[in-house]
Amino acid sequence: MTEAPSYLSPTGQEIVFLLLGAVAVGSALLVVTTRQLVHAALWLVVCFGALAGGYLVLTAEFVAWVQVLIYVGAIVALLLFGIMLTRAPIGRTADLDSRNRPAAAVVAVATAVVLVTVVIDGFRTAYAPLEPGGGSAKELGSSIFRNWVLPFEALSVLLLAALIGAIVLSRTDIRGRD
């Protein structure tokens, strides 16, 4: 790869990416620590939006728009429906965290320390010059339909199976054979 410039003179793209990453990590922290269930879903929207911005900075435009469409549009809406249908308490609730919260914090901090140390040690000299166009819809489309056709079709079957499974699970008048 190319020679890496110094860390002390970040480019504009790196500054933008770091700001977006800070937003994503901060809102993710709020997702797992907030005391209101609906706010967790809304902070998830902020986190996914910041990640989509990060994909844009990394020149992956198509992935960024798919992220906005599917994650922000579909998945968060589904999660909000789930919150509504399970009659979750709206407003502050004290018991969203279980009793093993300290153990979870210890495990998470240990995971973060190990991963960040390994990643910094491994990729300290790696540098990826950003060139636009690599992640456009045209490039990705030709790549999917030339080289990735079989996984693509398998995924469509998977989506169909998940759809039928969700319908069977959520309807109450379908019963197993006794």
Partner: peptide, 20 residues
Amino acid sequence: MHVVYPAVVSALLFSIGVYG
């Protein structure tokens, strides 16, 4: 873009998910 930046952000996101 240094590869360390997205890698560190994703490591932090992953451990936040583990905590959650």
